[in-house]
Structures are given as C-alpha cells and as structure tokens.
Nucleic acid binder design. Structure first.
Lengths: 165, 165
DNA sequence: ATTTTATGTCAGTGTTGTTGACTTTCCAAG
DNA sequence: CTTGGAAAGTCAACAACACTGACATAAAAT
C-alpha cells in the first residue's frame, strides 16, 4: 500500500517548520473533528465521553466493560460514571455474561442507536467533505500518517476494525 | 501538488465504514499525538492548556492576549488562569503595549523557551517518525485532509503560519 | 479454601472548560 | 474634557472528565 514512491529523498524535507505545521494541523483539525458532535451532545446534556462510549459499544456490540476500558484508555471509575448515566437514560443495556457471569456485555438500545447515528452522521459528514475536498490519494496518506502516529500498544484497537468496503 | 490522479471514481469509495475508520484514526492518533508532551507536562505539574499557550506564544512572539484567545478558542478566564501560573513561574513575560497600553504582549522567557523546546521536540519526534514511516506523498495527503477538516473561521490561523522550508 | 478477576461504588482531588458580574485601564469620539 | 466602549484582569460558582485510593461483591480459577 505504501510502496513505490517512498524514494531516497524523503529525509531532507522534514524541517522543523514543516513538522510544526503538521502539529498545528492536528490541533486545529481535531477541534473541527469534534465540533459537530459536541453541538448535538450539548443539547442532550452529554459530553464527549458519552459519545466515545456510544461509538465503541456500537462498533462492537456486546463488548465487555474491561474491553471498553482498554480501548478508551480511561479508568473504570471514569467510564462507569458515563456508563451509568447512559444505562439510566435507556441508551445502553448491560447484560450479565452467560459463560462468565462476572462480565457485563454492553448493547445499544434503539434510543442509544438513534443518538449514536445522529452523532456519527454529523461527524461522518465533515469527514466525507474533507475526503472529497482532498481526494482519494490524500485520504490514503492521511490514514497512513495517523496510523503511524498512534501509540504502539493502541494500534491493534484500530487495526482490528475490519473494513468490508 | 495533489493534481493528476484525482479521477472521477472518487465518490464511490466513501463508504460509511471507511469514514468510520477515518474517525477512529483521528481518535487514536490524537492520543498518540499528545502522549509525549503530556508525560513531560506531568513532571512540571502543568497540563495541555499550558502547552498550547507556550506553543502559540512561541509561534508568534509578542502576541496579545486577545489574539491568543481567538487562536486557542477558549474564554479569557480559562486562558488567564493558565497564563497567570506561567507568568508567576517565570516562563512567560507580559509587557504592556506601547501603542495601546491596554494590550499585553506575551513573550517566552529563557525558561519558557526551554520548556517549550522540550515539549515541541518530543511532539516533533513522533511526527517525524510518522512522516518517515508514511512517506512524503502521504504527508501531503495528511495535511490536505486535516486542513479541509478545520472549521472555516479557524483555518486562517493555520494558514497564516508561513512555511519558509 | 484461597486467590484472582471483573465490576461497581464512594470519596476526594485536579485540570480545563464554562457563565456571570465587576473593576481597572485607557483609547478615541463627541 | 467628558464619556463610551474596548481590552484586560479578577472573583465566584459550576460542570465535565480525568485521576487516585479504598472498599464491596460476585464468580471464576487455582
């Protein structure tokens, strides 16, 4: 995928100013990235943490609390606060595991799926616009750089997401 | 720069799953992006807000508080709390404006420059590694997509940063 | 029977953001 | 010169979201 054009002259172009430009691009773009969901969340009195929980429960239905913890990289106390409100509000359902009854498997309810879809669609719309503006080749590069930027022990959470196309 | 291969088939590839993959890439990569500076900041009892202030004061020496506010996108109360500690700790100097003496112009002290350099170098090191792993063409795409993802009224803060190369 | 694992909960703390109200300083227009 | 308003700073209160530490419960594993 990243073969071919990575010639020999790709060490010279890494000036500090270009790197700084990349750093600021990440900073400003991440603000845009979260802006649309944030507006929806505010209407429901939720925050980004709720969005993340909804996203990853939707991504892998029936995931356990422990798995969610390692994906999100927060403490159980922090996640639990968010999860409790989502369960109380009827967006998430927690079912005792059948094989291992210590585990809780998490599912979105219809209501939860609806909010997740609204948040996701808002975020996808911006991503879609950015992708279209930049073109397919840029998208490939975008994802290559981002993947290389992740922490090593986190990358597998990203890669395990299949892309059926 | 990104001319040529942006043919006609670049509308079909925008499946929801690919967009979701991009969304997760942003999420996981941003964690990596902030991880190294966060470790340094923790040693100094500072947070990300301090890093951002140091970065943008360093980027434009003598900037006013108001300008910094619009770049950072926070309230003056929020910025002021951070700025006050940086001034107290002797990392930032605040000089009354000569033309307009209501304004305060912000500068890094030697001590401030030293911390900014440490934070910046840690962040650049990861960016540099990601750039090298992905290759120059990927870097161009990376920046194109990020720029398209920014909010319209924010993008000029990014673009005004010159790149002398 | 004991230990470990998975989860949940309570209490306290810190950073970073917010609103709202208020003051001081000071440029500029009337 | 007075006044209006912009710029900056301060104080108080609050909320979201992260943390640590301690403890409880249930169930699996040893």
């Amino acid at each position: 995928m990243a073969e071919g054009s990575t010639g020999g002259e790709n060490l010279l172009f890494l000036t500090d100013e270009q790197l700084r430009k990349g750093i600021e691009a990440m900073f400003f773009a991440y603000r845009g990235f979260t802006a649309d969901p944030d507006r929806i969340l505010a209407q429901h009195n939720y925050g980004r943490a709720h969005h993340r929980a909804l996203h990853f429960i939707n991504r892998s239905h029936g995931t356990t609390v422990n798995n969610l913890l390692s994906v999100l990289g927060v403490t159980k106390q922090s996640l639990n606060r968010v999860l409790r409100t989502l369960i109380e509000d009827g967006l998430v359902e927690s079912r005792v595991g059948r094989r291992d009854r210590r585990e809780r498997h998490l599912f979105l309810t219809d209501k939860g799926r609806a909010l997740e879809a609204a948040l996701s669609e808002a975020q996808r719309a911006r991503m879609r616009a950015a992708y279209r503006a930049a073109g397919p080749q840029a998208v490939a590069g975008f994802r290559q750089v981002l993947e290389a930027m992740m922490e090593d022990d986190i990358r597998h959470h990203y890669q395990q997401l299949r892309e059926t196309r």
